[in-house]
């Protein structure tokens, strides 16, 4: 089951440690990321180290830190010495500017494609054979369907879930926000458990047997079907979903103090290279490189409509304030009881 991937990751980290011990002159980087990217960056770090060694002759060791996206953002604000931040959504990186001015306001313009080298989307994970016949968002509000999602207040992934559902409701009600909110309210009435993070919810759904459908990052859904058994779960792709762009940035104040700006910037830029894009695709993140995307086109199911946070919701700052801040739409769902 999961053991083989655990063993592989242990081996990988042992190799990293060993090579760190073998060479004295080396550069250390700390990449602070969110939960599901663990496997992705393990593989990528090795590839980057090889690339950097060939290019400059220096050894680079990248350490990883993973956790809920909001928690990781707060850790950096509170002094975690991250050289690069690779979080689940732009709002959490925005906070690095608004709360602590660790990065400039226009950080997202510094790298290509909104600083999002890979993307993902939200899909449904259902029990094998899809016994409740869940095909699209509209099926989630039916009576008797239990939906598992983490709490949007504490989970970045859950915010994407929520916005995807909201986008669907807007489209099917001709942009009527009141009706979209009523839809979301009905959806959350079908949620029996609100875990605080995506991995917690995945456990609730897969191990505890709670719920008929789990709203999931596409890469997590793939991981669940491949490593927890293809005979247990199916992936259902809704007619509309959201293009999730997990962005990356150099943490300016930290790299300037560490003297690692050049290598940290190269680390992020190399994410756009074909090599890195292949690694992303192998870990079920959607590559942005056209060639690699074409090569892996079969792997990723086609979503009919992909809305974006900028196009549909006016960017993260606005969406965050309208929907998830205290007293926002999400709070109203639970207060109008």
């Amino acid at each position: 089951m999961k053991l083989s991937s655990l063993a592989a990751s242990l081996l990988a980290s042992a190799i990293v440690l060993f090579s760190a011990a073998a060479h004295a002159a080396e550069i250390n980087l700390l990449n602070v990321s969110y939960d599901p990217t663990r496997e992705l960056y393990q593989e990528y770090n090795a590839a980057f180290a090889e690339y950097w060694k060939a290019k400059t002759g220096d050894d680079v060791v990248v350490k990883q830190s993973h956790g809920g996206s909001g928690k990781q953002g707060r850790a950096i604000i509170d002094g975690l010495e991250a050289d690069v931040a690779t979080l689940a959504l732009a709002a959490d990186i925005d906070a690095l500017y608004t709360k602590a001015e660790l990065i400039p306001a226009d950080w997202q313009k510094r790298l290509k494609l909104n600083s999002s080298p890979y993307t993902s989307t939200i899909v449904f994970l259902v029990r094998k054979g899809n016994p409740k016949h869940i095909k699209d968002w509209g099926d989630l509000v039916k009576p008797g369907v239990a939906v598992v999602t983490p709490n949007p207040k504490t989970s970045g992934g859950a915010r994407w879930n929520y916005l995807a559902a909201y986008g669907y409701a807007l489209k099917h009600n001709n942009g009527d926000h009141a009706k979209a909110q009523a839809f979301i309210k009905k959806l959350f009435e079908n949620v029996p458990v609100l875990d605080s993070g995506a991995r917690g919810s995945l456990t609730t759904f897969t191990e505890r047997g709670i719920g008929d459908v789990f709203l999931s990052w596409e890469n997590e859904a793939f991981l669940a079907t491949t490593s927890l058994g293809p005979d247990k779960f199916d992936i259902v792709v809704p007619s509309l979903s959201i293009l999730a762009e997990p962005p990356v940035t150099v943490v300016d104040k930290n790299v300037d103090r560490h003297g690692t700006r050049a290598v940290a910037t190269a680390y992020l830029e190399y994410l756009y290279s074909p090599v890195a894009q292949e690694i992303a695709a192998k870990n079920y993140y959607r590559p942005t490189d056209a060639k690699v995307a074409k090569k892996y086109a079969k792997q990723f199911p086609k979503v009919k409509t992909l809305v974006t946070i900028d196009g549909e919701f006016g960017g993260w700052a606005k969406a965050q304030k309208e929907h998830f801040a205290d007293g926002g739409v999400f709070d109203q769902i639970y207060s109008k009881k």
């Binding site: 809920g68 909001g70 928690k71 953002g73 707060r74 604000i77 906070a95 608004t98 709360k99 709490n151 207040k153 504490t154 949620v191 029996p192 458990v193 609100l194 875990d195 605080s196 998830f324 801040a325 205290d326 639970y334 009881k337």
Partner: peptide
């Protein structure tokens, strides 16, 4: 289960507030 108004404990609300900075 962390459902608001039913099984949501106060320490969780504190964490939720922190998550929103």
């Amino acid at each position: 289960g962390n459902m608001p108004f039913i099984s949501e404990i106060t320490p969780l609300l504190i964490v939720a507030k922190l998550e929103q900075y």
